[in-house]
Simulated scan of single mutants.
Amino acid sequence: MKVGDLVVRKSYGGDITFRIEGLYDHISLLKGTDYRLVADAPTSDLVNVPETTMKRRKQQAQIKMIESVEALEQHRQRQSERRQTEFQFANAPNQAAHFEMPGKVLHLDGDPNYLQKSMTLYNQLRVPAEGHYVSEAKMSEAVYTLLPRSRPDIIVITGHDGVLKGLKHRDLYSLQSYKNSQNFVNAVKTARQYERNLDMLTVIAGACQSHFEALLQNGANFASSPGRIMIHALDPAYVAAKAAYTSIRDTIHIADIAPHTITGTEGLGGIETRGSHRLGMPKWKDLSTLNVTPSVT
């Protein structure tokens, strides 16, 4: 075994694929390739993933993500057509076609690789997004600094989390039983100090096995993980994209989101929240084609 190898854990039935991030005596530090999980395991418990198995798992995840992206694209198209029809019913002139303003996302991630994957998804869906790699312990400080500067409609606060092993008395109600849930809660509190209105700033928070209830109780609109399961790296970004392209007239329902995430309602849940997508008119003009007479000396 060496750093960079793709492996699974025999004791867990090979359920999650990891990349070895570090080797310390007989212990390996592991990071999930597709799930937001950092773990350690005896090196003797690890098995290299056959290339064929890795390809199959990647293809399965890719198929699901493509289906999710297509569902978002269809949702956006239906919404655009519906709003265009409303303009026509309002006797809006044809030349006054509308323009779209999807919600802006500020994405803070405790993992640089997952951040890059999320930014690629936003770019693919044409969601305006700003991303920052921030360690979980510094999330609250980063939220305090970046929110006034970025002024987003949606903020994603994610990274790595998990229920701690080896606790003598594990209490899933206690934040002390989780690796980073307290850090995420602190960041959510800071976000709500900036904007208390749940519909003016949509907060999406948490990672694998995070304290779902505590995140919601402290101001998150959507959070992980109701079933204390591992969530896919892109699930928070998908929820953010859905919020960005749901009309401010409509409510985002978790029941509409869950079928298009990898982990469903066991991985992500939340409260009904208004979308952040707006339409305006008239459509922006190509300024290079306008014949404008200057009026100011």
Rank of each mutant, 00 (worst) to 15 (best):
M1F: 07
D5F: 03
V7Q: 09
V7M: 09
S11V: 06
G14V: 02
E21G: 01
Y24R: 08
I27D: 00
L29M: 10
L30F: 10
L30Q: 04
K31V: 08
G32A: 09
T33N: 07
T33L: 07
D34H: 08
D34G: 06
R36V: 07
V38S: 11
V38R: 15
A39H: 11
D45H: 06
D45R: 05
L46I: 09
P50G: 05
E51W: 06
K55E: 15
K55D: 13
R56G: 03
S68R: 04
S68E: 06
V69M: 14
L72P: 05
H75T: 05
R76T: 11
Q77R: 13
E81C: 00
Q84L: 15
A90Q: 12
A90K: 06
P93E: 02
N94K: 10
H98D: 04
E100M: 13
E100Y: 01
M101E: 14
L106C: 01
H107M: 08
G110T: 04
D111F: 04
D111I: 02
Y114E: 04
L115Y: 11
S118K: 04
S118R: 05
M119W: 04
T120E: 14
L121M: 14
L121D: 02
L121S: 06
Y122E: 02
Q124L: 15
V127H: 00
V127D: 01
G131A: 08
Y133M: 07
Y133P: 06
E136R: 05
K138R: 15
S140H: 10
A142W: 07
Y144F: 14
Y144T: 13
T145I: 06
P148S: 12
P148Q: 09
S150V: 15
R151A: 12
R151T: 11
P152C: 00
I157A: 02
G159N: 10
G162W: 03
G162L: 02
V163N: 08
K165D: 14
L167E: 12
L167S: 02
K168T: 13
K168N: 09
R170G: 00
L175I: 08
Q176N: 15
K179R: 15
N183E: 13
F184D: 06
F184T: 12
A187W: 07
V188D: 09
K189E: 12
R192N: 13
R192T: 10
R192W: 13
Q193G: 08
A207L: 03
S210C: 09
A214L: 01
L215K: 01
G219E: 01
N221S: 09
A223M: 04
S224D: 01
S224W: 02
S225P: 01
G227H: 06
R228T: 10
I229A: 03
I229D: 01
M230C: 00
M230L: 12
H232I: 00
D235P: 03
P236N: 04
V239M: 09
A240W: 09
A244S: 15
I248G: 08
I252W: 02
H253R: 11
I257L: 05
I257P: 00
A258G: 02
H260G: 02
H260V: 08
I262L: 05
T263V: 00
G267Y: 01
L268N: 00
G270I: 04
E272Y: 01
T273F: 04
T273V: 12
S276E: 06
R278S: 12
L279Q: 08
M281V: 03
K283A: 09
W284Q: 11
D286Q: 13
D286F: 11
L287T: 14
S288L: 13
T289V: 14
V292F: 12
V292R: 10
T293S: 14
S295D: 12
T297F: 13
